[in-house]
Amino acid sequence: MSHLKKTAYEAAASDTDFRKTWDRSEYEAKAKKEQDERREEGRARYEAKLEGKKWHKPVDFSTLDATSSRAGRVDVASMVGKSTLIPAGSAIGKRGRGAGFYCEACDLTYKDNVQYIEHLNSKQHLFNTGQSGEVARATLQDVRNRLEMLKQRKREREEEDKRMGEIDLDARLKKTEDIEEREREERRRKRNEKRRKGGQNGIKTEDSGWEGRLGIIS
């Protein structure tokens, strides 16, 4: 077939791994199919227009994944950072990347987080991201498993908090010890200072304090 009599172009192409070498018949069949689909779509759109309706490309439900719950909050904060001033009169769901909340999958920009979330929930967005919008119903076993998972997560967090608390307590104890140690050190220093003073004179002075006298005695 085509790959047997290599042209200069094909030889060059085969050197680069990222280029797929098409089987011509496969390629032609694919092109024919796409052309048929386009033609069919054009006819359907034309017929819909005659009836005064808007035509939508049918969705192949078999290829869609079930929709699931959000893993967390929609991260609005990180998007706000990217957005700049919103131009006056910006329409809802503006085509293309603009100032505001941008949906990559649909190439639409929304001016506030509520509109953006509404878009994320919309049929249009779900289909564009390969989701059916249908959620699998939970069984009793699903609920039990979920409770177990959440319980385990809670325990782990409690453990972690406890550990952090202990570290915190250790740190506080250590700090208190340090302070006490420093204070003891300071008292010792003062005592020695006094003693040295007393020792220097060698004479017991009348008005020397209690500590001074102690220094001399010792």
């Binding site: 719950s69 959000r70 909050r73 979330i117 959620v135 939970a138 699903d142 498993n145 979920r146």
Partner: peptide, 13 residues
């Protein structure tokens, strides 16, 4: 809109 979307009886937990 944000937190209740897509929940089932398990993920609602």
């Amino acid at each position: 809109k944000e937190q209740c979307f897509g929940l089932n009886a398990a993920t609602l937990l």
